[in-house]
Design a protein around this nucleic acid. Structure first.
Length: 257
DNA sequence: GGTACCTGGAT
DNA sequence: GATCCAGGTAC
């Protein structure tokens, strides 16, 4: 396991950029662009909620995608309820797109990418309660688009989400403050060469001083999303995510290397 | 083996 | 832009 200083990490990232096209080291994995970068840096895969290297978080993204970037994972409180596996997936889930094909016929899915600006078409929203200092999830069946979910609405129209899942400001501050304070964000071109996905890591952004107040404000304005990502056989976790420009705007200092 | 984290996607 | 989704590990 290599260790880096900020300076040696910059040097390593520039060397990787200069190598040009590099084959993915994680086939069939959407996280390949990030996992491959970590592999190139000699950072062993782990699921520890800490920065990747030398107090620097590393994030990579394909240049041509519009997908959201994941800041971190955190299951909602109260933890004892185990909201995703015991309530949201079984009570509010629906048949997985590949149920009866790739998965068992009984495979359910609960995927919701929600924000504070609008209800999803399944009736979920997040709200910022500054008095209680927490982010919470709410469900209101009146906001379900019945045309899009004519069968599912019958299953949930009488349901109340109570208690409401939430994340305390202090827990979010601790998570973001310890994991995201400084970050290298690398954009990579991608293309298939001889049938194999390759990346060219190109644009290196050095992001310093994550701003916790801007973080809460971005949630309040709907620029940060809470993303539930569970099926019966695998809960990928509940994530806080945002678009590329929103990520950069959360830092006090931005420098392109 | 279930839960909660990690790395990220396409249409 | 909203609504869906992937393969990994630690304990």
């Amino acid at each position: 396991m290599k260790t880096y200083t900020k300076e040696t990490l910059i040097e390593a990232l520039v060397n990787i950029r200069d190598r040009g096209w590099i084959e993915t080291q994680r086939k069939n994995n959407d996280g390949g662009v990030g996992n491959t970068l970590e592999d190139l840096l000699g950072i062993e895969e782990n699921n520890l909620p800490i920065p990747n290297a030398a107090e620097w978080e590393l994030k990579a993204q394909k240049k041509d995608t519009t997908s959201l970037i994941t800041l971190f994972h955190m299951e909602p409180s109260p933890r004892a309820y185990k909201f995703v596996p015991l309530i949201l997936l079984p009570e509010f889930g629906w048949a997985h797109q590949a149920a009866g094909q790739r998965y068992e016929k009984s495979e359910k899915s609960f995927r919701q990418t929600i924000n504070a600006a609008n209800y999803s078409n399944r009736g979920f929203i997040i709200k910022v309660d500054r008095n209680e200092r927490k982010i919470l999830v709410d469900f209101d069946c009146r906001h379900i688009e019945s045309d899009a979910h004519s069968e599912w609405i019958k299953l949930v129209s009488q349901k109340i989400l109570s208690p409401k899942p939430y994340w305390g400001f202090d827990d979010l501050y601790h998570k973001a403050g310890t994991k995201l304070h400084n970050c290298f964000f690398v954009l990579a071109e991608s293309k298939i060469i001889n049938g194999l996905l390759h990346f060219h890591y190109q644009d290196i952004y050095m992001l310093k001083k994550f701003d916790l107040e801007k973080f809460i404000d971005a949630i309040d304005k709907g620029r940060i999303y809470v993303d539930f990502d569970a099926r019966t056989g695998h809960n990928h976790g509940t994530k806080f995510r945002l678009k590329r420009d929103a990520l950069i705007s959360l830092y006090e200092e931005v420098k392109k290397i």
